[in-house]
Structures are given as structure tokens and as C-alpha cells.
Design a protein around this nucleic acid. Structure first.
Lengths: 238, 238, 238, 238
DNA sequence: GATGAATGAGGGTTCATTCAT
DNA sequence: TATGAATGAACCCTCATTCAT
């Protein structure tokens, strides 16, 4: 009733179709949607697609069953929306460091740290398990996840390496493959241990750093040019 | 009730698990067990743990429901037994090539081929998906799979690398980590594409070979000693 | 909250059910009521009571759920109101022809045509199915439908026949029964075929006419007096 | 093992697929099937197809839900099986009287009594309501019911009338229509009153007899030849 | 007064497990 | 011992009804 003008104004920015002050249209309230997604996240990540029940989601989300079905057509769609969201959160900002104009080794290490840290974190491991576990039954889901996530990231890594090649810092015959190798080297051993649950906790930072440093080192020893080596020696002295 | 002495006598000969001529004890007939396992394999690998029904197993195995429950306490145990068996089949003989006394690069490439080929094959991908997908719900399953499979294999790779270090062919500060790196390099890109279903078919041999060759090359550029380099140059001439 | 006095004043003018210019009282606007009934008709007649959902009605009527529940306490009451209305429409004007002072055979045939045509029409068949199908669960519904519809009509037919008896045209020992016989003869075969869906379309006019003519003929052969026969012969000549 | 030959022989007559002594195959035990049908009958006849729930059937039949689904694929199939069974019971033996070589009026009256009595009985009224009520949603059901029931019966009546025409007892231009007229006349008023629930009880015998006698009389007055009239007068004298 | 988002009991159906045969 | 018919809890989803807006 006594909504301040400022408030109203602020809201109207994103007042897509709901009236400014009224209740959001069915399936349009972003708060409720998030609530459902949060419940779904907890349940699906914990149990996987099949073992999770809509009742579980209902309970975790604190919403009624009917409401969920207003926002999502069925279990599978809810799951897909969740995976989509998780994917975005995972791969967002992951590759920004590659735009930095900096010493090559430092950039690669920073990227490796970001990648390895993210990919072995609790939530992301769960997400990967969930998607991989469902890939047999809902192939499009895994496909889309890979295409929109790892594949796009991989392309950015490839572009970065190409630039380094152009600068004469790296000499690579198959840039695409090299990009895969770099990523795998940065997570060497860690990812699989996490996926299978051999490691119950995400690795401590120093361990990740050790793996990344070594991985980048292997990568640069294999692909670094004499130009890079000179630069690198100079950097170490400093 | 009125078991004759003769019967008892017969059994006592090989009382351990089954009489020589009589019917095997309940849940002890290895033929029937294999029959069940074979049905379970077809069903679980195809549908995953949750989506597979015990009726499916029953049908595929050609055994009655009751019989399955004599051999396995419940669905989960049957599944675990299957995973165990699959794991054995996967990692069996995978590391034999490392015992070969041969040129280092050749041995590594052959090992990489065996590993990469196996790990990206249809059946093994399904098995990995299944285990990874279930790891959140049945942590022991993933744990045991990893410990008895990849981890043991990794130890063998480590031992192999240590021997190469001792021979002066490699110079490695963290052999354990290097072993992981070697494995990851040999499957670079392929495994994840398969797990997520981005690749629907197992990769063709020439592609695997390309990846493995490049991976081994990176590894050897990073860790190979001058001694190895000389040997390698000599081998190439021949 | 701060309704002006003027508004209130305006309402008090015709406080009974609605102000002249203002908004009608809750559940009192006949236009809105008709709108709801029209939606309900489309839905209930198409799907039957149970299979129809209130959401369907909402959509067809273009009214909100809450509004429906202001006009009708629940689904069943809405349905009953609809049946009532349908009944009125069905039996309205159906018996007017019986008031005509005309040749007996012609009047009976015209009545038979009106009855048979109406009772086998798509909408009326649906209505009958719906009421009959619900009669087990909502006995009052069927009872009321019959009493207000067929029974009253039957009384009018009886009265008509009595008048014809008085005129010496018919000789009937049980007029009540004869009235039933007349009605049944006019729809012979058609009604049941329609109710069970054996006939998907309402019968063509010429077929109805054939049935009615024959039915009336049977009726008059059985109950017509010599007086009537003479009249009838005269009429035919003309 | 020691089953007597006699026993085995006797049973093997109907031992279709179940073993002689063993438990009947899934969905094959006629006793259990009847049990389910009986429960379904009570529920469906009472509530109609939509309003009846499988839980209701479960409870009434005293069988578990799973068992029902072994015997019937789904609710609709169970319902159809029930309707089929009811139809058979209703129309079985209904037309035998028409094969009697007897006085025409007596045969018609006896047939009319059988028909009218059966068709207005509690169970049959319920069955008719149920089928008619479902005809909108499951058109095949009503169609099949009509075709296998009333239509076949109607054909038998037509054949009977044709024979009477051949004997010179009746003179009918449209035998098919006359058959409908006969049936309708025998139930005049009763059926509709029962279907709509205006009559809560099945009509007493004397009332049915009154209706049937009058109906047959009308029919014979309309279609009886002079030959028949003479025969009829003779019979009355006796 | 009108709206329609939210509720949650209950719908039909499946399936891991048991136990009489 | 092996069988598979029977069980019933739990699955996903719908919808009559309510009530905050």
C-alpha cells in the first residue's frame, strides 16, 4: 500500500509481465522458482535423477507438489533446468583469466587453479556425477551439458593457446589436443578420485597448486619455445 | 528330514560348497550365479541402477525372482557384485605391457593404447557412468571400484616409472603425480566426451593412437633424460 | 476501504440484488452466471462430469476459478444447475403441438417428429448420457431430471390422449400406459442406438420420419376408433 | 509324484497351461480373476468408470493393487472386461423363448416378460447406466456393448417376426422397425424410469405383465393378420 | 468482488521383495 | 531348492478447492 516511489521504480526495471505490485503470474515468480530449484538441487545432487522423488523436492523446497508442476512440466524438465543452471554457474567466469595479458606460465597456472579448484569442489562434483549418471537415460542432457560447458571452455583454451603460438611462445602442432592435455594435466588424478568418491573432501589448495604447477610445467616443457624459455628464466630471476 | 546317511556322506567329501554329484547348496551354484550376473550386466549397463528392474534381470537371466534373492540379498548387492566383476574384467591384463623390457616410448604408447581403448569402450563407459552415478548414494561402491581398479593400476604405472627413473631414462620429482599425468595424457579429451555422451561411439583406433602418441610425447619431453633422448634418437633412425 | 458515500448511496437505491449502475452483488450477475454456464455446458457435455475439470470450465467460460465458486458452491452444484437448465431447454415447447386443433394423425406425427428429433440430437443425447451416468452417484439429479422433464411431458401427452378419447377418436383402457407407448414408438430403436453410441450422428430427418409415421400408425391401429378411421380415410382422400 | 492316474486324467481336461498341481500362471487363476471382477463390478456399477478408483476395486476385491495389474493391463481394460461379462450375462438365454413353437401371442408375451424383467432389474440397470455414462469417453465400449448385446438380440427378434410373417400370422412392411417397436412396447415407460432413477426398485411382476400384455396387444392389433385373429379367438375360447 | 497461485489428498501405475507352492 | 504370484509402499502427476492479493 505505502510502497515508496523509489521501490516501485526499482522494481519496474525487471517487471517483465507481472504487474508492478501484484502477484507474479503462474510459474513466473522468480523467488518461488529459485526456491524450487534450490530444493531440487539438494535432492537431485544428493540422490541422482532416478532415486530422487518429487516428494523429496517438495519437502526440501518447502513448496507444494502442485506448485512445482506449475513451474516445471515434469520431473525431467525440472532436472534439466537444474543441470542447465548448475552448468552456467560452473563455467561462468572460469575462463576470464585467459584474457589477461601476463606472463604465460602465470596465466596458465592461474587458469589451472581456477579450473581444478572449481571442478573438484563438492557441488560441482555432485553435478558432474548427476549428469554422468543420467547420461545413459537422458542422452540429450549430457550432450547439452558437455557442449555448453566443457566444450565451449575448451574452445577458449584453444584460442588462448593459438594466441600464444602466434606470439612465438608455444609451438604446437595440434592446438585442439594440446588444450585437452593442458586441462587434464591440471586436474591429474584429482577429478577421478573425486568422481568415484575415493576422496570424500575437495583437495586442499596446496595440493591443487602442486598438481597444477607440475601440470603446467610438463605442458610448457613440451610445447614452450626458446623464446618462452628465455622469458621464463627472466621472470624467475625477478 | 529323512536325509540318508549316504547322502550326508557324499556331501562330506567336498563339504565346502557343493556335493560332487548332488545339487549345489543354495546360492552356491556358480553356473547359475553367472547366469544371473550376465542378465544383470545386460540390464544394469543398459539402464543404470535405478531404471533397471529386477523383473528385467529375471527375464534377461532366465532365472526366477526367488533364485536371484537366494544368490543376492537385494538389488543393491547384485549391482555391487556386478560392478566388482566388471572392474576385474576391465583392469585385468591392462598393465601387463608395463612388464615388457622394451624401448620406453613403445612401452608407454602400447600401455596408453590399451588403457585408452579399454576405458573409452562402450561397456566400460557404461560401467563408469553407472558407478559414478551411484557414488553419491552408495559411496562404498565408488570407493571400492576406485581402490581396486584405477588405484591399483596407478600403483603399477608408478612402479614402472620408478624403474625407468632408476634406469636413468626419466627424471621425475613426484612419480605418483607423473603416473596420473601419463594416464590423463593418454585419454586427453576422450574420456569426458564419452562419459557425457558427447561422443556416442567409441573413438576410432587412429584417433586414439593420435592422442596417445601426442600424450606420450608430451610426457617424455617433460620427464625424459638425455640418456632417454639419445636412445630415442637411435630408435627413430632404425 | 475509503469507499465514498455516493457509491453507497447509489447502491441503496435498488439494494435488492444489484445497483442500477454499480457492480452486481456477489454471485448475482446473471450475465456472468450465463458465461459460467456456457463454459460448463461445453466442458461437461463433452467430457462428462468426472472427466471434466474445473480448470476446463474456467478456460471455456473465461472466468476465474474464484468467481465460479462464488456462483456455485462446488463442482456438483454447478453440474446440477447445468442439467436443470438443459432439461428446461429440452422440454420447452416440445408439447405445444399437442394443443393444436388439427387432424389427430397429423398432430401425433408432428409431436412424434418434434420429440424424436429433439431426443436424438447431439446435445440432448450427451445430456441424457451425463445424467444417466451420474444417476447412480447423484440420485436426486436423475430423479429431478425425470420428474421435471419426461414425466411432465408424459402428463401432457396423457391429457391429449384423454381429450381424443373424449372426442371418440381413441379407445384406450390405460391412457397413462398408452402415452408411454406412443412416445416409445416414435423413437423406436433410435434412442438406444444413440445413447450407446452405436449411431455416431443424429439420424437423418427422413429416417426419423419413417420411424414416427410407422409408430403413429401402429398406435392408431391399436387405439383408433371407427370414428377416427372414417376421419382418417376422409383426410387421405383430400 | 504319486498322483493317481485318475486324478491327472480328470484335471488334464482343462489343464490349459497351468501345471496340473501347481499354482496357476500369472493372470491365469480364474478364481482370483473372478474375485477381481466381483470387486470391480461392485465399484464400477456403483460409481461409474471415472469416479471409481483402483483403490476401491482393490478394497472390494480383497486383492492387492499389483495383482489386479497382473490380470488387467489398466483400469480401462478391467472395466471393459467387466462390461463384456455383464453383457454376456444379460443377453444370454434372453431370446430362447423365441424358438418355441407355440401360440404367437404367448410367445411374444413370454419374450416381453423375459426382456422387460431382465432389462429393468437392479444389476442390469446399473450396467446400462455405467456403459451409457462411459460412452462419451470410451466410445468403443458402448459400441461394442450395443453391437454384441441389443443389436444381436434385435436380429433374433427380427428373424422371429419374419417367420411369423411367412406363416401368414403377421403382415409387416418393415420387419426391422417392427422388431424395435415390439421391444420398446414391452418396456414402455419402465426402462427410462429406471435409468433415471425415478423408480428406485425394479417394477413388480404384475406391473411388468400389464405393460407387456398391453404392448403385445398393440403390436398384434397393428401387425396381426386375419389368420392370426382367428387363431387368437380360438385360443381365448379355450 | 474478482483473481489465479498455491495446496495436498488422491489418482493410476510400478516394482523390490516375500513366501506358499 | 526353485519358482513366480502376490504384496503394498512409493512412484509421478492431477485437480477441486481455498485465500492472499
Amino acid at each position: 500500500m505505502s510502497e515508496t516511489l523509489i521501490d516501485t521504480e526499482a522494481k519496474s526495471d525487471k517487471a517483465d509481465e507481472a504487474s508492478v505490485r501484484g502477484r507474479p503470474a503462474a510459474g513466473q515468480d522468480p523467488v518461488k522458482r529459485d526456491q524450487i530449484m534450490e530444493g531440487a538441487r539438494r535432492v537431485f545432487m544428493d540422490k541422482g535423477f532416478d532415486a530422487a522423488s518429487m516428494n523429496d523436492v517438495t519437502r526440501e523446497a518447502g513448496v507444494s507438489k502442485g506448485t512445482i508442476y506449475v513451474y516445471f512440466d515434469n520431473k525431467e524438465e525440472l532436472f534439466e533446468a537444474l543441470v542447465e543452471e548448475e552448468r552456467c554457474k560452473i563455467f561462468q567466469n572460469l575462463y576470464e583469466v585467459l584474457d589477461r595479458e601476463d606472463n604465460l606460465r602465470d596465466v596458465l597456472e592461474d587458469f589451472g587453479m581456477a579450473l581444478s579448484y572449481k571442478i573438484t569442489s563438492d557441488k560441482v562434483v555432485m553435478a558432474q556425477r548427476t549428469v554422468i549418471g543420467a547420461a545413459e537415460r537422458i542422452p540429450e542432457l549430457g550432450l547439452r551439458f558437455y557442449e555448453e560447458g566443457p566444450k565451449k571452455g575448451h574452445a577458449k583454451v584453444g584460442a588462448f593457446l593459438s594466441r600464444a603460438v602466434a606470439k612465438g611462445l608455444l609451438e604446437i602442432s595440434d592446438v585442439d589436443l594440446a588444450a585437452y592435455q593442458l586441462s587434464e594435466l591440471c586436474m591429474a588424478g584429482l577429478l577421478r578420485q573425486r568422481l568415484y568418491g575415493y576422496r570424500r573432501q575437495s583437495p586442499p589448495e596446496h595440493e591443487i597448486r602442486h598438481v597444477v604447477r607440475s601440470g603446467v610445467d610438463v605442458f610448457l616443457k613440451a610445447y614452450g619455445t626458446e623464446v618462452f624459455a628465455a622469458q621464463d628464466r627472466a621472470r624467475r630471476k625477478a
